[in-house]
Lab assay of single mutants.
Amino acid sequence: YKPCFVCQDKSSGYHYGVSACEGCKGFFRRSIQKNMIYTCHRDKNCVINKVTRNRCQYCRLQKCFEVGMSKESVRND
């Protein structure tokens, strides 16, 4: 598999339409299922990588959408 499109960590396969790691897969699923609203405490362009991905949930979710993750493919079960 290609590296995670969101944070470049080791991917566990294709999730919600893109190559993603377990961490970003779970983060995206929880964010969508719980209708989470995050805020960025900087200027909405935080670097998201394996080391920084937990620092800003707003920018991490934005990057999930930017790389093509589909909220329609998240099931509500």
Results as ranks from 00 to 15, higher is better:
residue 50 K to L: 14
residue 56 C to T: 02
residue 72 E to P: 08
residue 28 F to C: 00
residue 8 Q to K: 11
residue 59 C to S: 05
residue 29 R to C: 06
residue 64 C to G: 02
residue 55 R to Q: 15
residue 26 G to A: 10
residue 7 C to Q: 00
residue 5 F to T: 09
residue 17 G to K: 07
residue 61 L to W: 03
residue 49 N to Q: 05
residue 52 T to K: 10
residue 49 N to H: 04
residue 33 Q to W: 08
residue 22 E to R: 02
residue 61 L to E: 03
residue 67 V to S: 09
residue 46 C to I: 02
residue 30 R to Q: 05
residue 23 G to N: 09
residue 53 R to G: 11
residue 22 E to V: 06
residue 52 T to F: 06
residue 34 K to N: 13
residue 34 K to I: 04
residue 30 R to W: 02
residue 7 C to I: 01
residue 58 Y to A: 14
residue 31 S to P: 03
residue 23 G to T: 11
residue 52 T to S: 12
residue 8 Q to F: 08
residue 41 H to I: 09
residue 16 Y to M: 07
residue 39 T to N: 11
residue 38 Y to S: 04
residue 72 E to Y: 10
residue 8 Q to H: 13
residue 4 C to S: 01
residue 48 I to C: 02
residue 70 S to W: 04
residue 44 K to Q: 15
residue 7 C to A: 00
residue 70 S to H: 12
residue 19 S to D: 05
residue 3 P to N: 15
residue 25 K to E: 12
residue 29 R to W: 11
residue 64 C to T: 02
residue 15 H to V: 08
residue 58 Y to M: 06
residue 22 E to H: 04
residue 66 E to F: 10
residue 6 V to I: 07
residue 1 Y to R: 06
residue 52 T to D: 12
residue 7 C to R: 01
residue 35 N to T: 12
residue 20 A to R: 01
residue 51 V to P: 06
residue 58 Y to G: 07
residue 58 Y to W: 14
residue 7 C to H: 00
residue 64 C to M: 04
residue 3 P to S: 12
residue 33 Q to E: 10
residue 30 R to E: 14
residue 49 N to M: 05
residue 5 F to S: 09
residue 35 N to W: 04
residue 42 R to Y: 12
residue 12 S to H: 10
residue 35 N to A: 12
residue 45 N to H: 10
residue 21 C to G: 02
residue 35 N to K: 15
residue 17 G to V: 04
residue 53 R to E: 14
residue 61 L to D: 03
residue 31 S to T: 14
residue 56 C to S: 02
residue 42 R to M: 15
residue 32 I to Q: 06
residue 16 Y to A: 09
residue 64 C to Q: 04
residue 75 R to V: 12
residue 25 K to M: 15
residue 30 R to D: 15
residue 48 I to L: 08
residue 54 N to Y: 14
residue 50 K to I: 15
residue 29 R to N: 14
residue 24 C to W: 00
residue 29 R to D: 09
residue 17 G to Y: 14
residue 68 G to P: 02
residue 23 G to I: 05
residue 27 F to N: 00
residue 31 S to L: 03
residue 51 V to F: 14
residue 69 M to L: 06
residue 6 V to P: 01
residue 8 Q to I: 00
residue 51 V to C: 06
residue 32 I to S: 04
residue 25 K to L: 12
residue 76 N to A: 13
residue 4 C to D: 02
residue 41 H to N: 08
residue 54 N to E: 15
residue 53 R to N: 14
residue 21 C to I: 00
residue 1 Y to A: 09
residue 31 S to D: 01
residue 7 C to E: 00
residue 23 G to K: 05
residue 41 H to K: 08
residue 65 F to A: 05
residue 38 Y to W: 05
residue 61 L to M: 10
residue 23 G to C: 14
residue 21 C to R: 02
residue 34 K to D: 15
residue 35 N to S: 12
residue 61 L to P: 02
residue 60 R to W: 14
residue 8 Q to Y: 14
residue 18 V to E: 04
residue 23 G to F: 05
residue 22 E to M: 06
residue 59 C to H: 01
residue 42 R to A: 15
residue 14 Y to M: 10
residue 48 I to D: 06
residue 77 D to G: 11
residue 28 F to Q: 01
residue 6 V to R: 01
residue 14 Y to N: 10
residue 75 R to P: 12
residue 43 D to R: 10
residue 20 A to V: 09
residue 39 T to V: 12
residue 45 N to E: 12
residue 28 F to I: 04
residue 57 Q to R: 10
residue 31 S to K: 01
residue 37 I to P: 08
residue 20 A to G: 03
residue 48 I to N: 04
residue 12 S to E: 10
residue 40 C to T: 03
residue 73 S to T: 08
residue 66 E to Q: 10
residue 36 M to Y: 04
residue 65 F to I: 14
residue 76 N to D: 11
residue 47 V to S: 12
residue 76 N to M: 09
residue 43 D to H: 05
residue 51 V to R: 07
residue 37 I to T: 08
residue 55 R to V: 15
residue 65 F to Q: 07
residue 11 S to M: 09
residue 51 V to E: 15
residue 75 R to N: 13
residue 34 K to C: 09
residue 55 R to K: 15
residue 65 F to Y: 11
residue 64 C to F: 00
residue 72 E to F: 05
residue 62 Q to V: 12
residue 60 R to V: 04
residue 20 A to K: 00
residue 72 E to S: 10
residue 32 I to G: 03
residue 27 F to E: 01
residue 48 I to H: 03
residue 17 G to P: 07
residue 55 R to C: 14
residue 15 H to I: 04
residue 49 N to P: 04
residue 36 M to E: 14
residue 68 G to R: 02
residue 66 E to M: 13
residue 61 L to R: 01
residue 46 C to K: 00
residue 48 I to P: 04
residue 67 V to K: 11
residue 73 S to K: 14
residue 35 N to P: 05
residue 57 Q to Y: 15
residue 73 S to P: 11
residue 11 S to D: 11
residue 46 C to E: 04
residue 40 C to F: 01
residue 72 E to T: 11
residue 20 A to Q: 04
residue 49 N to T: 11
residue 55 R to G: 15
residue 76 N to W: 09
residue 67 V to H: 04
residue 2 K to M: 09
residue 59 C to D: 00
residue 9 D to A: 04
residue 54 N to G: 11
residue 23 G to E: 15
residue 35 N to D: 14
residue 7 C to N: 03
residue 42 R to N: 14
residue 28 F to W: 07
residue 29 R to F: 11
residue 18 V to P: 04
residue 54 N to H: 13
residue 74 V to K: 06
residue 55 R to W: 14
residue 51 V to K: 10
residue 44 K to A: 11
residue 16 Y to E: 15
residue 59 C to T: 03
residue 48 I to F: 09
residue 26 G to N: 15
residue 22 E to D: 10
residue 18 V to T: 14
residue 10 K to A: 14
residue 61 L to S: 00
residue 48 I to V: 09
residue 67 V to R: 05
residue 63 K to H: 10
residue 19 S to I: 13
residue 16 Y to V: 09
residue 1 Y to D: 13
residue 64 C to E: 01
residue 27 F to K: 01
residue 6 V to H: 02
residue 6 V to Y: 00
residue 68 G to A: 01
residue 64 C to L: 02
